[in-house]
């Protein structure tokens, strides 16, 4: 309905930034909590944890104003992000990454994977007997598929700082500014899948 009278790009940019920023303080304190336990128990793992934590925050700082970024950089960031979560939710959570980077160079909106991973965690139960598994796959038709098994939490929407749909709407709107290919969401009983169109890298 905004086709002839689009909202300014800055509007969506600001909205996306707000989504991104609401995540980091919570994530930082939880990570520090894990670290305070890990530091004496497993110094080696603590060292790797600190390394990945630093990478995550460096990426957040360096790319917060970027409009698009190489997919390989976003994947590397997501690997660090996932590492931190896998230590924190040991045995209950994992992210499966594509075996190799795509041959073609693509770009994505920075933090796309972070938002999708956080979404999956916020909305699903996880336990050692029923882990939450997120898989990231690169499709041949210029799409990246991010899916997770559905084990929805029961809490009402009002308890939540942001809903899936708000986050997804933010992602969809931002991608709509950058490409004609839509972000696709497929929500079945077993699987929640978001397909992200891969962008042309910046010239």
């Amino acid at each position: 309905m905004f086709e002839n009278n689009p909202l300014p790009n800055e509007h969506f940019q600001a909205q996306f930034a707000a989504l991104r920023d609401q995540i980091s303080p919570h994530f930082l304190f939880n990570s520090l909590s894990v670290l305070s336990s890990l530091v004496r128990k497993d110094p080696d793992l603590s060292e790797r944890f600190i390394d990945h934590l630093a990478r995550v925050y460096r990426y957040l700082l360096e790319h917060k104003d970027d409009e698009r970024l190489a997919l390989s950089a976003e994947l590397e960031f997501a690997r660090s992000f996932a590492f931190l979560l896998e230590v924190r939710f040991v045995r209950k959570f994992r992210v499966e990454f594509p075996a190799s980077d795509p041959a073609t160079t693509y770009a994505v909106l920075p933090f796309t994977l972070q938002l999708l991973i956080e979404n999956a965690i916020r909305h699903n139960r996880m336990s050692a007997s029923a882990p939450l598994v997120i898989s990231i796959d690169l499709e041949e038709n210029q799409y990246m598929r991010v899916s997770n098994n559905c084990q929805l939490r029961t809490q009402p929407e009002s308890f939540q700082p942001g809903s899936t749909y708000r986050n997804l709407a933010g992602i969809q709107q931002r991608y709509a500014m950058l490409t004609g290919m839509p972000v696709q969401v497929d929500d079945t009983d077993e699987q929640f899948t978001v397909r992200i169109p891969l962008l042309k890298p910046t010239r």
């Binding site: 939880n30 909590s33 894990v34 305070s36 336990s37 890990l38 128990k41 230590v87 924190r88 939710f89 040991v90």
Partner: peptide, 9 residues
């Protein structure tokens, strides 16, 4: 507590 490490701590 749902995070084992935090529970141990």
């Amino acid at each position: 507590e749902d995070e084992d490490l935090t529970a141990d701590r």
